[in-house]
Computed example of a mutant assay.
Amino acid sequence: MFDDISSSALRVAVSGLAARQNAIANNIANIETPGYRARKVAFEDALHGAVTRGESPAGVTPTTLTSLEPTRLNGNNVNLDQETLSHIDTTMRYQLTLRALDSKYSMLRDAIKGA
């Protein structure tokens, strides 16, 4: 009941988005750290592929990659504007995903209650 593809995909999305928020926070915290390379989290393509193939998305895990963007003189490549936009986008996606999960569980709750 809780292991259907949509529930599993939503749980993976929440996990991936949380990992991305953590990477963004680390990037911003290290904006002045010499030699620090920004981290990026990817999971959407793997999740989409699993769902498209009809496979369980439960096996999809977020991948943290090091940004290959050009660096400043101190070797740091964190771009505050880019991180801010990514934070806003990720927060909105996270909230939408949580609402979808909440709606799914509300329907199950109503079905169990017989409402």
Rank of each mutant, 00 (worst) to 15 (best):
P34K: 11
P57A: 14
R72M: 06
A38F: 03
G35T: 09
N77S: 10
E55W: 11
S67D: 15
K40W: 03
N30G: 10
R39G: 05
A50C: 09
G54W: 04
T63E: 14
G49T: 14
A29W: 07
S67N: 08
D45H: 07
A25M: 02
N77M: 08
N79Q: 12
K40R: 13
P62M: 09
A50E: 03
T71Q: 09
E83D: 12
L85W: 05
D81T: 13
R72I: 00
P57S: 07
V78T: 04
S56E: 02
H48C: 00
S67A: 09
A29P: 13
S67Y: 02
G49W: 07
T64W: 08
G54H: 07
D45N: 09
A46G: 09
D45R: 15
D81Q: 13
F43K: 05
L73E: 08
G49V: 10
T64S: 11
E55H: 12
A38P: 12
T66H: 06
H48M: 12
V41E: 03
P62D: 08
T71P: 08
N27W: 04
T63I: 14
G54S: 05
N74Y: 05
A38N: 07
T64Q: 13
K40T: 14
E44N: 10
P70F: 01
L65M: 13
L47T: 07
A29M: 07
N30K: 11
L85E: 03
Y36L: 03
R53P: 03
N74H: 06
I31N: 04
A38K: 08
A42C: 01
G54A: 06
E32G: 09
N77D: 10
Q82G: 02
E44Y: 09
T61P: 01
N77A: 06
N77V: 06
S67M: 02
A29H: 11
G49F: 01
A38Q: 14
E69Q: 11
V41Q: 08
E69K: 12
N74P: 10
R37D: 06
A25Y: 05
T66K: 06
A58Y: 08
T66G: 02
E32V: 09
N76D: 07
N26T: 12
T66L: 12
E32A: 11
H48S: 09
N77H: 11
E44C: 00
E32H: 13
G35Y: 12
R72K: 08
N26E: 13
S56R: 10
P62K: 01
N76G: 07
H48Y: 10
F43V: 01
D45P: 01
A42F: 13
D45I: 06
V78M: 06
T64A: 12
N30C: 11
T52L: 14
S67E: 11
V51E: 00
I31Q: 07
L68T: 15
D81E: 15
I28Q: 04
P70S: 09
L47N: 05
E55L: 15
Q82C: 00
E32W: 00
